[in-house]
Design a protein around this nucleic acid. Structure first.
Lengths: 343, 343
DNA sequence: TCCGGATGAGAAAACCTATTCCCACGGTTT
DNA sequence: AAACCGTGGGAATAGGTTTTCTCATCCGGA
């Protein structure tokens, strides 16, 4: 415990500063905040006293008067998992710069805990709430007619009038497909997660559309399955059986891509010489540990968080964005798995 | 934005409740808090009014008066990474139950940002601070003579008088070694991270000691390298070359273990029939994606967080634990990679 | 030289919200 | 009539910010 013999440390109030500078409390406040008019000498005396005593205004008192708390709540159901963390960091980045502190709440995807936390945040008079999740599936909002603005990031409210910010799954799929075509591939397969996930469907859609506009169609069926390596291994087997001449595989996640890479290696297909491989997520431990390192789509989650925070700040400042969906473009991270074969 | 036409929602104060119930402010307060004596009818009238208006006491005012804020700060340098997240969740678990809210701060391992955040937390009058990190290497504390208690979790202060809570790396290593011996292995190698990491050294130490007390010593050298799959692949090659008769490998991380598993498979050694494999971290996407699924040491990070939170709560309540190290035992998660060969 | 108004410096008080202690005001009991 | 009890109002308090107010000085004009 870094605390000394507790009790010796009494917090310094403006009262102490005023006494030390031999002025009234009001004058001390004005001096510290640069308001009002007074002799430079007086102002300096107050500032010096504050410095000397280590005065730090109590934000509770300030907030009480101003009716502001300079805090926001961050609610996640993802247990701060792989997806919501980058979002959180981006949000904290944007908020922290504005001197706003963040209360964190993990709901463990339990609606009861969620309501409980929202209640608590409102009781604490947060000025806004960011809700993050691990899927882009629409979900019920955290409440109607809340007294503060709410932004959904990396998740989406079923209510169209809410502000939701999600990654561009479709654009990411298109990006992957166009990149593969640009490296000369034409027989491109797709192994991805469960079809019930909107993210999986949109990624597939983006890929299919991009191929179509070049007069191509996917190699074999779109293979929907699980978000796991195990499924990647199985899916690659199915694909190789159905379309033995496949020369590229776009995977719905980096985990799936790793499974696919493993099967390819075991079946004697070289990556990238025989089959190019693109993943999704840019989950670095996975993408870099892959053999070879994985070209993958990055959803720019940090940007999603930053954008969510900015929307929230605007709304708090009284300039709310119109409700609806904001889609953050994805980008492609190039690594070995799609290197063009040196001719 | 769930907020209605902003401005219509005025927060309800106890003044409004008192007016609605036609009592004084003081009486309203007493009614709401069950203090003082008054007619049941009066109390009910106040409670009904509060209910009807949706009154929620302003914690700023309560905190101002009570001199408490019911908040703590959580500072991490790990960018809320793989290690600090479970710690955080554990901490939030323990704190949330006590009606304490958590301010989160990510320092990005930058001492300047760290100091800045600590200042901010103190300005907000948090009642305590938890510092988490990604290594157990001792680090300088966040400050001396802070006015609030501090607990270091999953990291360790260089100041012995601080309270630090870390995982039992040595015990984890011993656990792995004893488990391997219990399944009949006797020639056990070790591939781990860089030697400059205390965690790597302690895990190796735990393993060596456990082997020694059974009259064994490690197969080959302890192979220090990187915390990466790539190194796992290389390390396994080295080990197989130096000690071809190795029948088990304990790895310093699950990532290393995956690399090792891959090399073993390519060299025709079956896991677990020929060589058993134990990882460290129980990082599920890695451990479950491994072929076969990985037996691994779990550091019980959540427990570390919960313990840190409880220590902090105790200190806040005026009952600080004596400074020093608390070590949380690790546990073993059994999976395929160490299954005993069916005879 | 004296008076009135303007100006400047800083003190004093109100305010924000909720809690708590003290006291006054009835009515009842001894 | 005095003591006592239940009830509920009023004020003090916490730590700031902001508005108002007072007092003194200074200047110009008479």
């Amino acid at each position: 415990m870094a605390s000394p013999s507790d009790g010796t440390t009494k917090t310094v109030t403006i009262r102490d500063v005023a006494a030390a500078a031999d002025v009234s409390i009001g004058t001390a406040s004005k001096a510290l905040n640069g308001r009002g008019r007074m002799r430079v000498e007086t102002r300096d005396r107050v500032l010096a006293a504050a410095e000397r005593l280590g005065f730090r205004p109590n934000p509770l008192a300030q907030g009480l008067l101003a009716g502001r708390t300079y805090t926001v709540g961050l609610v996640t159901g993802d247990s701060f998992g792989r997806f919501s963390i980058p979002v959180m960091l981006g949000a904290e980045d944007a908020l922290g710069a504005g001197q706003i502190s963040v209360f964190m709440c993990d709901t463990r995807d339990d609606p009861i805990r969620e309501r409980h936390y929202v209640e608590r945040l409102l009781a604490r008079r947060v000025e806004g709430i960011i809700v993050t999740g691990r899927r882009t599936e629409p979900r019920p909002g955290i409440g109607r007619d809340l007294p503060v603005p709410v932004v959904y990031a990396m998740t989406q409210s079923t209510d169209d009038s809410d502000v939701s910010i999600i990654p561009d799954d479709e654009g990411g799929g298109a990006l992957a497909a166009r990149h593969l075509m640009a490296t000369g591939r034409t027989r491109i397969g797709h192994v991805t997660g469960p079809q019930r996930f909107e993210a999986a469907r949109r990624r597939a859609q983006g890929m299919t559309t991009a191929l179509a506009s070049a007069g191509l169609s996917p190699a074999g069926e779109i293979l929907y399955g699980q978000w796991s390596e195990e499924w990647g291994r199985q899916g690659a087997d199915v694909l190789l059986h159905e379309s033995p001449d496949v020369d590229a595989i776009f995977c719905g996640s980096d985990q799936i891509a790793r499974g696919v890479a493993e099967t390819l290696r075991e079946r004697g297909r070289r990556v990238p010489e025989d089959v190019a491989l693109v993943g999704f997520d840019n989950w670095e431990p996975m993408a870099l540990g892959c053999r070879p390192p994985l070209t993958t789509v990055d959803m720019n989650l940090g940007e999603i968080g930053r954008l969510a925070a900015r929307h929230l700040l605007d709304a708090i400042a009284g300039d709310p964005a119109p409700g609806g969906l904001t889609i953050v473009p994805a980008s492609l991270v190039l690594r070995e798995s799609t290197r063009r074969a040196t001719p």
